[in-house]
Design a protein around this nucleic acid. Structure first.
Lengths: 148, 148
DNA sequence: AGTGTTAGTTGGAAAACCGAACGGAGGTGG
DNA sequence: CCACCTCCGTTCGGTTTTCCAACTAACACT
């Protein structure tokens, strides 16, 4: 039994260890937009260059992005999402959705066109039944759950 | 036209301004679990007390949580999610899902039971067509989009 | 030679963070 | 009554991060 003083075991916390700071997620956002170069990411996010460097290294070390050499002589790399990184799109979509609803209710800064023809309106559902995941989620169980 | 040096307008960035640090989201996680008291949140997240205080104040100032007095004489409050806060569950679910898949592929620390009877497996879909949101999302448009 | 682009690196100041201690208002046990 | 415990913070001192601007390196273009 874990001491009560230890933080809860939790995939949310573990994921936040990797991508839980502003600049990591905004860098990933840029990669989703197709931006590949360091300077562009700096410009589009507003991150300072040293912080961005360290975030990109960390993301790379954790298999979320990958560097690809596009120039040999000044050795230059461009950044790409790995499959695991692409899955983080979901996080961005949900954050965007919340911000659109609560901070920009009238005019979302960006709309994505979905293959169905409509503007993407991301909702989180249960893969089994298709119902809203949030509402139907009850009674957690597992190592991360504690009495009080 | 915004200068190219300005960061992109973006609801993701705006949302991260409010909840984009580790302790904010973990505090919200605790509220989702039904934890209401300061000391419990400290214990379950591992946050230091002063940081947690400042995060809770910020969340309250932004309408994500609400304090309710439960004792008058030592003036004491417990914390609750507002409706806007409840919507952030979606963010937590998606972060959990990613962490479960990539960091704990064999044994997720926590499973939530869904009303359909199965373990919740959150996926992000387009509200219009029900298709996976991430895959079908193409061609962004709006103020936050720029040429390069 | 001079200017521009790209991807960092460096240094110093500012801010955030942390653990531990403290406070104050009360409750509990003897 | 006194000692001790709980709860919710606040304060303190020190460490770690972050921020920002300037600088470098290695080339390309003109």
């Amino acid at each position: 039994m874990p001491k009560d003083a230890d933080p809860r075991e939790c995939s949310v916390a573990d994921t936040l260890d990797l991508v839980g700071e502003r600049w990591s997620l905004l860098a990933i956002r840029e990669l989703v937009y197709g931006v590949r170069r360091f300077d562009q990411i700096v410009r589009n996010t507003g991150a300072s260059r040293d912080i961005l460097t360290s975030r990109l290294r960390k993301l790379e070390a954790n298999g979320i992005i990958r560097r690809e050499r596009y120039s040999d002589h000044p050795v230059r790399y461009e950044y790409h999402l790995t499959p695991a990184g692409v899955e983080l799109c979901d996080v961005l979509l949900v954050l965007m959705r919340w911000g659109d609803r609560h901070l920009h209710p009238d005019d979302p800064p960006v709309r994505w066109q979905h293959s169905c023809g409509e503007t993407v309106t991301p909702v989180v559902v249960c893969a089994h039944c298709g119902g809203e995941a949030r509402r139907g989620a009850h009674s957690p169980s597992g190592r991360g759950v504690r009495a009080s």
